[in-house]
Structure formats: C-alpha cells, structure tokens
Design a protein around this nucleic acid. Structure first.
Length: 555
RNA sequence: GCGCCUGUAGCUCAGCUGGACAGAGCAACGGACUUCUAAUCCGUGGGUCGCAGGUUCGAAUCCUGCCAGGCGCGCCA
C-alpha cells in the first residue's frame, strides 16, 4: 500500500480516537491534504489536517496536531518520527527501511507496478482526433492523438475499461466541397482551365488524389457534373483520405476501437430520436422556419439551430445525436478531446448534455494549438492555403517517439511550441532521448556477463541496509511515488505529469550512475544495487509504455 | 464588443487543484571520459510569479478590475 494511503488511514483513525477520548471535538472530519514537502526538514509526508480542523474543533492548530499525534497508532517500522511544525503541519518521517520495500514490490508486480483499481472496471470512452476526412492529419491532430491515446492508457492502468473512438464527419456539404475540389483538379490535370472553388480544399493532396483517381481508372464526370456526381467524388476522396489518416495514426502508434460514422446516426434514426427527446423535455421550438434548441436555458449565449429552414440538419444536430448515442451505450465517463479552436462550441454541447441528462458523465478537454517552429522560426500552417506540415511529415522527420513525448510535455490547455530541429536533436535539450538513454544504459548494465549470477532469482530485503548513499534513498522514494503519479495523471486527465516524472527519475538515475559503480568487487553491495536499478528499469519501461514510447535496450 | 485559454529566470516550461525560504531543462560561465554507454554528470550566476486591489493563519494557485498574446463568437463543419 502507498505510504500516503497508510498515513491517511492512520490520521483518520487518530482523529476518531481523539474524539472518542474527549481530546478533540468536531462534527465531522473535513477533507485534508497529504503532500510531499519540498524541503527534507519537513519530512516525507506532511498533513494539513490540524489546520483544516482548527475552525471546527475550535482549538489552535498546533494543539490539535499534538492531540492527533498522541492518538496515532502506526505500524511497526513505518515511522522514524512525527513532528508538529510551522502553523500546525504534522510532518511524518518515514524509516529508510520502509522505503526500500518498494524494490521487492516492483520485482513482484513487474510491469503492473503503478496500476490501480481506481476505475473499478467502470467504462470510459475517449473520443479524440475525429478530424474531418477532407485532408491529411496535421501536427495539431498529432498532439490530440498523443494526448488521447496516453489518456486512454492511463485510465486503463488505473482500472477503467477504456474504449478509443474516432468520430467521422462524413455528412454534409464538406463532402460535396471536397468532391468539387477533386473534380476541378481532375479537369485541370486534363489541361482544362477551370476556376478553383472559393471554399475548396487547396492542398496539394487533392492533386495526388486526382492522379490516384485516374490511375485507378474511375469514370470522370462530364463538364456539367450533377450534384450526385460531385458527392460520389467527395465520398471517394473522403474514403481515400480516411485510409491515409488511419495509416498515419497506425504509424503513430494510435489504434482506435471504433470508427463512428456520422452518416450512421441518420441511417439509424438517432437524429430524430435526439430531437424527440429534446422536444419532450420542452427545449425544442420552431422559429423563422427553422428548428431551434433552447441552449440559452442552460447558460449558452443564445439558442442554436438544429434544423435549417432548408430542411437540412446542422452539424450540431449530429453532435447531439452522437452524444446521445454514446450516453445510451452506458459509459460511466465520456471524454471528448477537442481542438481549442472549437472551444466556442463547448457551452452548446454542454447545454444539450444537460437537457438530455448526461452532463455529469461528459468531460470535454480542449487541446491548445501547436505552433510549429524550425530553428525557432514559425512555420506557416493553414489547412486551406495548402502549405501545412502534416503529421506524416513530422513523423518522418523526427520519429514517433520524439513526437509523442514532446506532445506530452505540456499541459493540454497550454500552447505548445514544437520545434522540428529540437525534436531531431539527440541531446539533453530533447527529453525523450534523456529518458530513453537511462533505460538503455541500465539495459547495458544487465548485459554484463556477471550480472545474472550476482543478482540471483529474488531480491533479498537483508541487502537494503547496504544501500547507504543518499542517491539510493532518493531513488527509492521516487520509485515509490510512481503509482500516485500515474493515479493523478489519470484522475486529473493530465498525462504531462508522467513525462515530468520520467524525466526526473531518469535524471536521478544518470546522476547515480555517474557517481557509483553498480557492479564492483563488493558482491553483496553489487547485488543490492543491481536490484535497485532493476526496479528503476522496470518503472522507466512501464512509464514509457504508458506514453507509447519505446524503451530501447541500446542506443 | 463578448467569451475561452495563457502570462512564472534571457528562452521553453513545471509547480502535486490554498501551504512552510519559488523549481527543471536549455542558453551563459567553469569543471569531469584508461570506468557498467559522456545521447551523461558536477558546480556557478539568474525571478517584484503581467499590474493593482481583495478573501485568510497562509496566495504563483481563489475572487474582482485592468494590461498583453493566442483562439473563437454562422440557419459552416
């Protein structure tokens, strides 16, 4: 069990004991924090229970802290000492020997160390990327892909049953626009001078598609194409683009459990079902020939059209239906990952979720945009203008590992500067290699011929007192913090916590490696150190696996 | 004009959702390779946490108002 969990229980019991003994009086135990203090003088774990209890128990915090300590019944071997400090913190100093147990735990649990049962098998769906099939994925989609994928990994690690889903906007006039763009490019390939549509997709990839279309020997619509012809062209193009997107994601290490087609919502009557549900709840009305959802009743700026005067439904209508469909599938939690340029859309979807009663199960995460740089200079990126950097180009230039890791070095809601040159550099400026190198270094240690013989099959707790170096204790404490890091990253939906943790762990390892030889004349000490760094290697590998980054045996 | 995100060291960013003297990497400067991988390590300098108020035992963190940057504000998707 985690040290903080144990201490939380001890304090809760102590409070109850103190209350029973009449030493303290309070109605109910308030929530309190356990933190790892920055300063070693403040111990390994600090509790603010006495501070938050002060007003309820009507006593000075330090006095409460004393009372709590007196009723503390700690297990043998856990605590070196407990102190009241500052305004009333209770500082716990854990025995070194207790920390070293984590080496055995990691050996026992192997690659499941860091897993938890927080999710208790509840179902969670993560919907991400969901880029329109009108062009290849660009670097911003890559960030969303990395974030969503790792979020899903983390949630799975803490006991959720996770599904990854990609929502395909394959309805509407964008497919037609795509078809028209392709059509014009096709005619232009034949040498005809046709004006490109104002709202067309100007990317070079449309030419590529046109060439593919011809090479495959598909029929070319005549000079006056019917709407149906353009739609058919658009569908063909969307399919081809989607195939490319799947390939890109595959190469990026992102695999979806489901690809959900917007069209299927119409085919299966979900849009009408959503309208009916909203109407029944009294949030749907007609005005100016259009059908409106009363979003303003739920805090949105204004009401929103779901069916236009023309009879065509809006994108929003599809989205309501889609989320109703998701909610009906029975997920306990639905996580949506959107580009920050869609943030204005959040209030209206939230409104619909509230109107339909699944708002509490829906979490919408915004991923801020990525600014692409090269040598510190901005690289222009616009979808329609045609000069953008695709995810594929980034993958080919910097590789999957560097791209994934760098995408996860920022909070999702912070802008990200992604410098292609830095991503390619293989030095300390590039944290991915720093972490991978730590793993490779350890792998090389275990390749030493004497290593297996020195270690034996099982770690022996009697060895730990030999680990007297400060670096060793620090390392073991860091290892012990891995489960809570994974848990926090999953609970707060913040994968960047893991990349920071791994960078720190790798740093401590590098430092330790440099100062002390693991394999030496002293066989017992070597044995102890090898088991310690074996645990480090296991945690590095697990952490990198959660990030979807390879843990190389050599570099 | 309104809304969302951001503002922390020269640069890029963390800061455990209110805790104890504000952290890391890079850049700068100075050191360490006959060693289990130097893609590494050790040391030095560097901050009025955008500004001004407020809340309280305690604020980078919460509230209000300004300032600056980014992104949005369709019967588009």
């Amino acid at each position: 069990m985690q040290v903080k969990e144990i201490i939380r229980r001890l304090l809760t019991q102590a409070a109850a004991q103190a209350k029973a003994a009449g030493a303290l009086d309070f109605p109910e135990l308030p929530p309190f924090e356990l933190e790892t203090p920055k300063l070693p003088e403040h111990g390994d774990v600090a509790a603010n229970l006495a501070l938050v209890l002060a007003s309820r128990a009507k006593k000075p915090p330090r006095q409460i802290a004393q009372a709590l300590i007196q009723h503390l019944e700690a297990p043998e071997g856990l605590l070196a000492r407990v102190e009241v400090a500052g305004p009333g913190f209770i500082n716990f100093f854990i025995r070194d020997s207790w920390w070293f147990q984590v080496i055995e735990e990691i050996h026992r649990l192997g690659s499941t160390y860091g897993s938890a049962e927080l999710g208790a098998g509840r179902r969670v769906q993560v919907e991400f990327v969901s880029a329109n099939p009108t062009g290849p994925l660009h670097i911003g989609h890559g960030r969303g892909a990395a974030l969503g994928d790792v979020l899903a990994n983390l949630l799975a690690a803490v006991g959720y049953q996770v599904e990854r889903e990609y929502y395909i906007n394959d309805v509407g006039n964008q497919i037609q626009t795509l078809g028209r763009s392709l059509y014009v490019r096709l005619r232009q390939l034949l040498g005809e001078e046709l004006e490109f549509p104002e709202d067309g997709y100007r990317g070079e990839y449309i030419f590529d598609l046109a060439r593919q279309y011809r090479e495959a020997g598909h029929p070319l619509p005549g000079p006056e194409p019917e709407e149906e012809d353009l739609l058919a062209l658009g569908r063909w193009a969307a399919d081809a683009i989607l195939a490319g997107i799947r390939q890109d994601l595959d190469d990026f290490g992102v695999h979806f459990d489901a690809w959900f087609s917007e069209t299927s919502l119409y085919e299966q009557g979900w849009v009408e079902r959503a309208f009916a549900a909203l109407k029944e709840a009294g949030f749907l009305y007609e005005q100016d020939g259009a059908l409106w959802f009363a979003a303003s009743r739920f805090g949105d700026d204004k009401d929103r059209v779901v069916r236009r005067r023309t009879g065509a439904t809006t994108y929003f209508a599809s989205d309501i239906a889609y989320h109703l469909h998701k909610a009906t599938r029975g997920y306990d939690l639905m996580v949506d990952l959107w580009g920050a340029d869609h943030h204005g859309y959040v209030p209206r979807l939230r409104a619909a979720a509230e109107a339909l009663g699944f708002s509490e199960r829906l979490r919408i995460l915004l991923v801020q945009l990525v600014s692409l740089l090269r040598h510190g200079e901005p690289v222009a990126m616009t979808t329609r203008g045609g000069t953008f950097v695709t995810l594929r180009e980034v993958l080919e230039e910097v590789g999957k590992d560097a791209a994934r890791f760098l995408f996860l070095t920022r909070r999702a809601d912070a802008h990200l500067d992604f410098d292609l040159e830095v991503a390619k550099q293989q030095n300390a400026e590039n944290p991915v290699y720093y972490v991978q190198y730590a793993h490779a270094r350890l792998a090389s240690v275990f390749r030493q011929p004497e290593a297996p013989d020195l270690m034996g099959a099982e770690p022996d707790p009697a060895l730990w007192p030999l680990l007297k170096e400060p670096e060793e204790l620090e390392l073991v404490k860091r290892l012990a913090a891995f489960p809570e890091t994974v848990e926090a990253a999953a609970r707060l939906l913040e994968p960047h916590r893991l990349t920071y943790y791994l960078t720190e762990l790798a740093g401590q390892l590098h430092s330790y490696y440099y100062k002390h030889r693991f394999i030496s004349e002293d066989r017992e000490l070597s044995r102890a150190r090898l088991w310690l760094v074996a645990a480090v290697k296991t945690v590095l590998a697990r952490g990198l696996a959660l990030l979807g980054v390879t843990a190389p045996e050599s570099m």
